[in-house]
Simulated assay, not measured.
Amino acid sequence: MTTHLSVRAPDRDVLSDPGYQAYLVLRVVFSVAPVVFGLDKFTGLLADWPSYLAPWINDLVPGTAQQAMYAVGVVEIVAGIVVAVAPRFGGLLVAAWLAGIIVNLLTIPDFYDVALRDAGLLAGAVALSRLAVRYRSVQRERGSVA
Rank of each mutant, 00 (worst) to 15 (best):
D113I: 15
G63S: 06
G73P: 02
V103S: 03
P62C: 05
A68N: 04
A99D: 01
G73M: 08
A115P: 03
A86W: 12
A68Y: 07
D110L: 09
L105I: 03
A68C: 07
L116T: 10
I102F: 05
R88A: 15
A84M: 13
R117Q: 08
D118L: 09
L98N: 09
A79I: 08
G80R: 08
G63Q: 04
Y112L: 13
V75C: 11
G63P: 00
L92H: 06
V75R: 04
A65F: 00
L98C: 09
V72G: 00
A95H: 09
D113M: 13
D110P: 01
Y112H: 11
M69S: 01
Q67R: 08
P62V: 06
L60E: 08
A84P: 14
I77H: 02
A96V: 14
P55L: 14
V72R: 00
F111L: 12
D59C: 05
G73N: 03
T107F: 14
A71W: 11
I57N: 01
G100S: 09
I77L: 06
R117N: 08
L105Y: 05
G90F: 09
L105D: 03
Y70S: 09
G100F: 07
G100M: 10
M69D: 04
G63C: 05
D59V: 02
I77P: 00
V61W: 14
V83E: 12
L60M: 14
I101N: 07
A79G: 04
V75Q: 07
A71H: 07
V72D: 02
P62S: 08
P87E: 13
D110N: 14
L116D: 03
A71R: 06
L92D: 03
L92F: 14
P87Y: 13
D110Q: 11
W56F: 14
Q66E: 12
I57Q: 03
T107S: 15
L53T: 13
V82F: 11
A96R: 10
V94N: 04
A95C: 07
D113V: 15
A96M: 10
V114F: 06
E76I: 05
D110F: 11
Y70C: 06
E76Y: 06
A86S: 08
G63E: 01
A65H: 00
